[in-house]
């Protein structure tokens, strides 16, 4: 169950002299759900295209199921399915006809294909609209049809590029459910997204992309430990009080942001009593004081904030 299915070494791709992907190393094991996270333009899609052999890398190598996607593209593309960002289908064909076309391209006999298509459409709950033109489909239905295509081809590796972008919460939830099911069947899934909160429930590991590099690969717990630690965020609301001046010298305070009446204080431990005391001492009026542990989403945002400051 734990063989390596994708291995990338030193992948680099330059467009117009600028390195869009800059020396990426990535190893994915069978049955994993790996989240490729990062802001738009961080190089996620380019990396995916290189993994699939749809774009030639300037440097580095890829092994997908121990095959080179550039040398043996047909075998790689047979085993690995790619669902592009905002996938398009032929609007004038029905869902079933669209899948029948790709089934023929994949080399399935028509008899075999019709069974596979029916099954796949049933699994993504599109069997009711299988004979409707795709032109009438909503975005969520198109994404599900894209998943059905990968299911129909029985891809062992599924690479989904921004599958949840532009979907409403219910459709997103449904889509993530399908992804979790695929992983349970032993398929390997790569999901790219610019939102961590969305995919964190299904990912076993995440890779954070930033400016063409992978800054971090690991489980969500590792990410939280690395970025957040035991840190707390304390929201303070007070009147006639200058938090920036009066709190920054307090032991344990990392940063004070905000101004006027509301501040957010990053602290390494619970400082609420001390803060309250300072406010009262300086004659301010304390209105609200609230502490919470930083969430993964915040850790993720903070990761990118720190990295863009450093760069």
């Amino acid at each position: 169950m734990s063989g390596t299915v994708i291995e990338a070494r030193g992948l680099t791709k330059a467009y117009k002299g600028r390195n869009v992907v800059d020396g990426i190393n990535l190893t994915v094991k069978q049955g994993e759900v790996l989240g490729l996270l990062g802001p738009n333009g961080a190089g996620k899609t380019t990396t995916i295209l290189m993994l699939m052999g749809l774009t030639e890398a300037n440097a580095g190598s890829v092994r997908l199921l121990d095959k080179d996607p550039l040398r043996d593209p047909l075998a790689v593309k047979q085993a690995a399915g790619y669902l592009p960002d905002a996938v398009g289908f032929y609007d004038s064909l029905t869902a079933r006809e669209n899948l029948a076309f790709t089934a023929r391209l994949a080399g399935f006999a028509d008899v075999d294909a019709s069974g596979r298509i029916g099954q796949a459409l049933g699994r993504v709950r599109l069997d009711g609209v299988a004979d409707r033109k795709v032109g009438t489909f909503s975005r969520g239905m198109r994404q599900r049809l894209g998943l059905a295509e990968l299911l129909m081809r029985d891809c062992q590796i599924m690479i989904l590029d921004e599958p949840t972008s532009g979907l409403d919460p219910q459709s997103t939830e449904e889509l993530l459910g399908f992804i979790a099911d695929f992983a349970n069947e032993g398929r390997t899934v790569l999901v790219s997204s610019h939102l961590l909160d969305v995919v964190q429930t299904v990912c076993t590991r995440v890779a954070l992309f930033n400016r063409g590099r992978i800054g971090f690969v690991g489980t969500l717990a590792e990410l939280a430990a690395k970025v957040g630690g035991d840190a707390l965020e304390i929201d303070l609301e007070a009147e006639s009080f200058d938090a920036a001046a009066r709190l920054s010298n307090l032991n344990g305070v990392d940063a004070v942001i905000g101004g006027d009446r509301r501040w957010r204080i990053s602290a390494s431990r619970d400082l609420r009593p001390e803060i309250a005391a300072r406010v009262v001492e300086s004659g301010g009026r304390l209105i609200a004081l609230d502490a919470h542990r930083i969430g993964l989403g915040e850790a993720y945002n903070r990761y990118f904030r720190e990295n863009s400051n450093a760069a």
Binding site: L54, Y82, P84, F89, T102, A106
Partner: peptide
């Protein structure tokens, strides 16, 4: 991109 991701050249 979807068509090119099918197992064809």
């Amino acid at each position: 991109s979807r068509i090119l991701a099918q197992p064809i050249y």
